[in-house]
Computed example of a mutant assay.
Amino acid sequence: MGSFKGHVLPGSLFLVVGVWHVWSAVARYVAAPPGEFRVRVWNPMGSGRLKHLELYVVAAGAFADMCVELLYSTHLKFFVGREGILNPSHMNDFEHGGMLLMFFIYGVVALLSEKTRYLPFSNGALCLIAAAAFCAEYLLFYFHSTSHQGLEGYYHLLLVILVGLCIASTVAGALCPNSFAVDLTSGIAISLQGLWFYQTAFTLYGPMMPKGCHLSGNDITCESHDSQIRGEFIANIQLFSLVFLVVIFVLGCYSVAASKYGHSELLNWHTAALQEDDQNEGDQELVAH
Rank of each mutant, 00 (worst) to 15 (best):
A62G: 01
G212V: 02
Y155C: 07
A168C: 13
P207C: 12
V16D: 00
R117Y: 08
P44Y: 08
V250H: 09
L126Y: 07
H144L: 11
N123L: 12
H75W: 00
F79R: 11
L251F: 06
A235S: 12
Q275C: 06
S122N: 14
S122H: 14
A110G: 09
V109P: 00
H270G: 01
S122G: 15
V171L: 09
L119I: 15
A60R: 08
N43F: 13
V160F: 07
S47A: 12
L119R: 08
A172H: 00
I229R: 14
A60P: 09
S255C: 04
R38C: 06
S3I: 07
V243E: 09
G187H: 02
N43L: 13
P88G: 04
F240R: 09
L139H: 06
T74E: 01
L111N: 13
L128P: 02
G46Q: 11
F14M: 01
K51S: 04
H289L: 12
D219E: 15
Q149R: 12
G11N: 09
G18D: 00
I248Y: 04
V163E: 03
D277A: 13
Q279W: 14
I234C: 03
A288V: 11
F78T: 02
I248M: 10
L266M: 08
F202R: 12
N218R: 14
S3C: 06
F180R: 02
Q149A: 14
C253Q: 07
Y106L: 08
L86G: 13
H289P: 08
E281W: 09
S12E: 09
E83T: 12
K115S: 05
D283H: 15
M102R: 02
F197Q: 04
Q228Y: 10
